[in-house]
Design a protein around this nucleic acid. Structure first.
Lengths: 331, 331
DNA sequence: CGTCAGAATGAACACGCGTTCAATTTCCGT
DNA sequence: ACGGAAATTGAACGCGTGTTCATTCTGACG
């Protein structure tokens, strides 16, 4: 024990490690020096029992492999680490089903906050299972459907405005002559993809274009590849494909180029969604709707810190806006 | 409190949640039912204080974005979750420098085990900072350099045999006529890449081939792209490129095809390392040396469980073997 | 030198749990 | 019905902290 070695009380050691505690500077320095020699660190578990702060942030993700999610986790972990938090990572099943067992399991670790990238879990469930942590919910719709009802569960929100980027994308495609546009969806259960499809349909209608040809994807490369083959072998006249994510767009492009003999963008235009790092790889050079990762992660951190600073305050909302990044797959 | 609601002692509640405890089945069921209604879960922090088990596994990674690492984290998290552990994720700086501050920081969470994918941190440091957890160290060399000295720090090891896959790769390239082979390295500080380069040099010599032309990479696409341009614009006669990782191989291929007008594999052969999910994408269809992710993760979990079952036992070692996956970038 | 406010100190307590141990109950065989 | 072994129970304790509160020390001012 550090206290005995330094000939001080155990309380003094505690104070030495807490910046706001009242202790004589010389004494603090001495204790910290002894602690370092003894390789002592305050036990976070014991500390969290008395402070009620675990300094853990639970992150629930369906698929860490996905470039978009891994890049988000990377940025988030970096940002959290800078603020003194650690990332506690959990995985749901690939179909986005959020097992209530998993939430109960996570609750045991007493995270200070929870971020669920699995959009299909209702905030009601999240709030019911977790007691102390206020979950952060990512909202894609204009109507958020998260149940703002007073007396309802307290949930902070990050709203992603998808309409801006989608409008720019459709305008660009139309400007280069696209008329018959297909939409490759993501996993059906994903609220993000449902909203993307709805917006694409709406924007196309507003611009006097026919409704989108629907392709049933699941965010993966392989499914996008197969769907593209079966669509273009049967149906002609599709000028452009709007994919619900970048990886899906890659699958579309590879099927078009390497199996169907079509050129991108000369024969078929392709637009993706997310702007993952791979989107600028020369083999794809993808024009895509960007969700700014830095902005998004900073918004998460702001929400977490604000909520922890004042746990009782009403629901918080941050908003980020998408925009089109123009590269080489349109026009 | 559950105990009061169910009219039992607090001890009974504890026993109800511990499978090996002695309690009448009917009583346990009743308590668990009441607990569920009250949304009660044993606090892991409090539990870890008395059991000495946190059920946390610290994972230290330089770059979650990298496909290889994200895929490994994904598989590892799934496997750990199945065994009742949670992944505690930490990020080092991109240059692989393992900050001792980070380790001290992590120590506070009291992880049951630590896996460091940052290969340049010496086990001595890892062991000195962490007290309870026995770290797992990934070893790529034939001579492991981890300091097996008795009295040295206790460290479990996962040995990756890289020679097998490298021999197969070189044999295949040579079989298709390659003679002058370049090697694109990874980050200089990475022990994995140092060993890969050493082995490539050795295998080339054994097969009567000239030593490799060295390209200084850092595992990223962009650097690989640039290095390829500067190499092939100056020096002719390079038949093939052996990249230290798949993403680097992608950069090489894109530079060759989209900027230098060379065909792969007709003009230049390319081989990668890792076999990430993207390696089978049609734009690349990369022939690569596979490190089997499932085997690797299972080995990690075996090491963790074995060590926890018997904390005092001598150092454990698991071994996995690489092999070539033949696709379309050679021959 | 005396006084008093503010800073510094340490004893006691609580956080929520698993475990030990002695006391009590249950169960089986006769 | 009885004895004894086995199963079950609950009080007390400790894990390593931060915090409260009463006490002691420090230093400045009159």
């Amino acid at each position: 024990m550090v206290a005995r070695t330094a000939n001080v009380s155990r309380v003094a050691v505690s104070r030495a490690f807490n910046p706001h505690a009242s202790i004589k500077p010389a004494k603090r320095d001495m204790i910290l020096r002894v602690a370092q020699e003894l390789n002592y660190t305050p036990d976070r578990a014991a500390r969290s029992m008395v402070t009620g702060r675990s300094h853990l942030v639970g992150v629930i993700v369906p698929d860490v492999c996905s470039p978009w999610e891994s890049q988000e986790i990377d940025a988030l972990t970096t940002a959290l680490q800078a603020e003194g938090f650690a990332t506690l990572l959990f995985k749901t099943r690939i179909d986005l089903s959020m097992d209530e067992t998993l939430l109960t399991y996570m609750k045991g670790y007493n995270p200070d906050s929870v971020i669920a990238f699995t959009e299909n879990v209702r905030p009601q469930i999240l709030s019911r299972v977790l007691d102390r942590a206020v979950p952060i919910y990512v909202v894609y719709g204009d109507d958020d459907g998260a149940g703002d009802a007073p007396g309802g569960p307290l949930t902070d929100r990050l709203r992603v405005v998808q309409r801006t980027g989608i409008e720019q994308a459709v305008a660009l495609m139309q400007g280069y002559g696209a008329r018959r546009i297909a939409f490759l969806s993501g996993v059906r259960q994903s609220l993000a993809t449902v909203e993307r499809e709805k917006l694409v349909r709406r924007v196309l209608a507003e611009r006097g274009l026919p409704p989108p040809v629907l392709m049933a994807g699941d965010y993966t490369y392989d499914t996008a590849y197969r769907e593209t083959l079966s669509l273009f072998r049967v149906q002609g006249g599709v000028d452009a494909v709007f994919a619900a994510n970048d990886v899906g767009a890659f699958g579309v492009m590879d099927a078009l180029r390497h199996e169907l003999g079509r050129r991108v963008p000369e024969d078929v235009q392709v637009v993706g969604f997310d702007d993952i790092l791979q989107a600028h790889w020369k083999s794809y050079n993808l024009t895509t709707v960007k969700i700014d990762l830095i902005e998004r992660v900073q918004a998460f951190v702001r929400l977490i810190l604000a909520r922890l600073r004042n746990p009782g305050q009403p629901a918080l909302t941050e908003t980020i806006v998408t925009r089109l990044v123009v590269r080489g797959t349109v026009g």
